[in-house]
């Protein structure tokens, strides 16, 4: 399962008003580590679909949201609950390390 894309237009519905916990992956085409971590996030998304929604936000196409969430380094993965950021993970990490960082939202 590939994480679906969100945009400026859909962010409110898909992320802020989502009843589930949502992880937003801020990424860009030109960012090598983003491309490396993307399939790992897809795996986590399919393994924990009932607990965590994982979506991707392209910072090139949606600079407003990148600025709003003060993104200065990507990949940046932000976990949202009830519209608030509850956890930020920065940088590509191997799957076990990401799962450890996100443990509270996967169990």
């Amino acid at each position: 399962m590939t994480a679906r894309a969100v945009t400026d237009a859909t962010f409110e519905t898909e992320v802020l008003n989502n009843e589930k916990t949502v992880l937003v992956d801020f990424w860009a085409e030109w960012c090598g580590p983003c491309r490396a971590v993307s399939p790992i996030l897809d795996q986590i998304a399919s393994e924990h679909a009932e607990k965590l929604d994982i979506v991707k936000l392209n910072v090139d196409d949606n600079p407003g949201l990148a600025a709003k969430y003060q993104i200065t380094s990507i990949p940046a993965m932000k976990v949202f609950q009830k519209g608030e950021v509850v956890k930020t993970v920065i940088g590509a990490k191997p799957k076990p390390a990401l799962e450890a960082d996100l443990a509270a939202y996967l169990a």
Binding site: W30, C34, V59, T72, S73, I74, I90
Partner: peptide, 17 residues
């Protein structure tokens, strides 16, 4: 401050500056 202005990857993060 890593990821909040401190970076090790110009090609990844230059865009934000």
């Amino acid at each position: 401050l890593s990821g909040h202005g401190v970076s090790w990857c110009a090609t990844c993060d230059g865009f934000f500056f």
